[in-house]
């Protein structure tokens, strides 16, 4: 008996030693979080900045507060990866470098991502309870985005009603071509946005409409296509009707769970202006589409479908 437990003990000792040595050697390659200078900090009302500093700045700014245990591998790896990814997407220390229109869009994105409880990351609030967002915080953020936003209505007229459809169909950087076919599809919803002063009609092809009728949208069937046509709003007429102004863009979503695996099974494309100029410089543009559309995960990543509530 004695010899067995001795054997066991020495085994445990050996494993412990190996783990300790491994841990120590890990520390030599452990990443350190840099604090680059703050070039153009976010400036909103104090009540808003206070929330963001408390709940977001550890990841989304150059003012990351590093606790001692953040410096220990493997935690340091996880923290550094989060901070790197978070700063690359949204950095409040470089807020000024975003064009005004992107700042405007980002404010609403922030409000929505927080309201849905997707940010700050749950793993983070589990440890940093002070970073949790309360109902009062959400109200402050809502009032803030509403106060900052007042998109100007477009001109009271609209440009020529019959732009020529180009001879060859434009293609987005990820290889998705524009299709005018949606004009013969069913309209699945009609929407307008008070965050950016546009209005939209959303079409679905037969596969998409059938999926809605059968309630099978998680996931959507392959072959479903959704098209959204966007116009600027005209100022309201004397009865309060707001009509479409100039044409703005067309956005498309193609369902193919294999081909578009990297973007949640949807292939995204956007074409701007009556010239239908493809949006995005590299195929990576569709990652930004897919990121935001995760907020519609309940609907299989599609926001605008008719629901009872």
């Amino acid at each position: 008996m004695g010899s067995i437990s001795l054997k066991k003990a020495s085994k445990t000792t050996i494993i412990t030693v190996i783990v300790v040595v491994l841990m120590i050697s890990l520390q030599f390659s452990s990443p350190t979080i840099q604090h680059p200078p703050i070039t153009g900090a976010f400036n909103g009302p104090d009540s808003v900045t206070a929330i963001l500093k408390r709940a977001c700045y550890d990841c989304h700014s150059n003012e990351t507060r590093v606790a001692w245990y953040h410096k220990i591998a493997p935690i340091s790896w996880l923290v550094a990866a989060d901070v790197k990814a978070a700063r690359s997407r949204l950095n409040f220390s470089q807020w000024d470098s975003l064009p005004a229109a992107d700042q405007q869009g980002m404010r609403w994105y922030i409000e929505n991502i927080v309201e849905q409880g997707r940010m700050p990351l749950a793993a983070y609030t589990a440890v940093h309870s002070s970073a949790r967002i309360s109902a009062a915080d959400t109200r402050i953020l809502k009032n803030y985005v509403l106060a900052v936003a007042s998109p100007k209505p477009a001109a009271a007229t609209r440009a020529a009603a019959k732009p020529a459809t180009p001879g060859t169909l434009p293609v987005a950087p990820n290889g998705i071509a524009y299709t005018p076919d949606y004009k013969n599809w069913k309209v699945i919803s009609t929407t307008n946005r008070f965050d950016n002063g546009t209005m939209r009609v959303i079409y679905g092809n037969d596969i998409a409409v059938k999926a809605i009728q059968q309630g099978k949208i998680r996931p959507w069937p392959n072959g479903a296509i959704i098209a959204k046509v966007v116009w600027n709003q005209q100022p309201a007429d004397q009865d309060g009707n707001i009509l479409t102004g100039d044409f703005n863009n067309v956005q498309l979503m193609f369902r193919d769970d294999k081909k578009f695996k990297d973007t949640g099974g949807w292939g995204y494309a956007r074409f701007n202006g009556t010239a239908l100029a493809p949006y995005g410089k590299t195929p990576m543009f569709s990652q930004t589409c897919a990121s935001c559309h995760r907020l519609a995960a309940d609907n299989g990543f599609v926001f605008d479908i008719p629901t009872k509530k």
Partner: peptide, 26 residues
């Protein structure tokens, strides 16, 4: 929590297409 869908709000009549759309906040 997939929401309850409302396919009955989709207008389906063969042979017609969208002319325009508008909304009224009042």
């Amino acid at each position: 929590k997939q929401p309850t869908l409302a396919p009955e709000t989709i207008y389906q009549e063969p042979g017609v297409s969208v002319i325009t759309s508008f909304f009224n906040n009042r």
